[in-house]
Design a protein around this nucleic acid. Structure first.
Lengths: 221, 221
DNA sequence: CGGTGTGAAGCGCTTCACAGCG
DNA sequence: CGCTGTGAAGCGCTTCACACCG
């Protein structure tokens, strides 16, 4: 399990895990080759091998990787030893969609608290997640031992929310608000920007020409 | 307006446009320096200058960039001359959130048709967008002259939907389904993968240590 | 042979650093 | 002076290509 691993590799490992989990359930395969996993993930075989190297697992030279063991290795690498708790700020359309998406999916990584300023929502349980007043953010986040948060509030409120989260000791943020957050460098921020993404799609749709194999957070195929 | 421009640059241009539009409305500024725009966007000044070079605009050596003109240039570059129409497939929680997010935002880039298999939704108008039966996908998409689409269906249906979209001549796809799509290389795909993004955040939240300034589709700060 | 593991090369994007200009 | 425009350097990630093994 190597030195310091790039965000891109972490992302692909997350993807491999999902693909392998599906495959194990649907077909009963016990082994995969790097080129098979590569096809599933739409990356190259060399890429897969390098990523797997990063988690310190070695496959068999003739039968490829043993799925069970590889999955265990990836889990050990990606997941925290104890279940990790996540906060959601903003329970509008998008917040609810996010809640629905993650609800009951992974026992190890759970959204345990939601925050909103709408008094109608406060105190209710939405998709199995307790909703708090946004004024209680610092208190609840600190007490619950939450390290990661999702921001799904309007652009105008996002920076303020982010500052408060960081003050409450949150170290990583998934930001849906369409503005770049200014935060101390020790905080990890992952942005999901619908407008930017759709603008890219619209732009490259027009370039009828022929395209482009982009990597990463990003685009492909 | 240079040769062939990377997806990353296109993304940042979309961001600059939004930031400048806000700024123009809120403060009455007529000019920006590259380092100001850089701060707003959380990138370097050199990056901003390079991106602006790409759209073929030159600023004044002493007063920086004239906001009005720069915006016009970026719009001309990013937007299609005639309004561009977009389809949405899948009107679940996420689909509705996407619809809400984009509704009425940009006259030049509009979601004009939604598709779902739930008979309750078919024929209705949701967030100002007409909902069709998914069986009519090819017909409606072709007739309406739609080039771009958003996929917000469950993972299991995504590849099939994507194939049908491509058959209906869609050239760019914004894919929310958590599986990589296998499509002809002329199709541009931009993936938004909630699970992968949250896994990254969770992973780097744990690395209390100190981090990391990631670029792009991606993470920062 | 057809796999994996990996040094080395390749490539694209970002940053540096400076000429040139108002 | 301080800013823009830009060649050149730097950097990180991806891919190549091959040694080695079952």
């Amino acid at each position: 399990m190597a030195d310091r691993i790039s965000a891109k590799t972490v992302g692909r490992l997350s993807l491999y895990r999902r693909l392998l989990t599906n495959r194990r359930q649907q077909q009963g395969d016990r082994h995969v080759y790097s080129h098979e996993l590569a096809d599933m993930a739409s990356v190259t075989a060399a890429q897969v091998r390098r990523d797997i190297m990063a988690v310190g697992y070695s496959g068999s030279k003739s039968r490829g990787y043993e799925i069970e063991t590889l999955l265990a290795r990836i889990n050990a690498f990606l997941d925290s030893p104890r279940p990790q708790r996540v906060a959601l700020v903003g329970v509008g359309n998008l917040g609810r969609a996010v809640l629905a998406f993650f609800s009951g999916r992974r026992p190890n990584l759970k959204i345990v608290a939601a925050f909103d300023k709408d008094p109608h929502k406060i105190g209710r349980v939405i998709m199995g997640c307790r909703c708090f007043a946004i004024d209680d953010l610092e208190a609840v986040v600190s007490e619950t031992g939450i390290w990661s948060a999702i921001i799904a509030v309007p652009a105008g409120d996002a920076q303020d929310v982010a500052d408060r989260l960081v003050r409450a000791d949150v170290r990583g943020i998934l930001n849906f608000a369409p503005i770049p957050l200014h935060l101390p460098p020790a905080t990890y921020v992952e942005d999901i920007d619908f407008t930017m993404s759709l603008d890219k799609v619209a732009y490259f749709s027009r370039r009828n020409g022929h395209v482009v194999r982009q990597a990463a957070g990003g685009a492909s195929s």
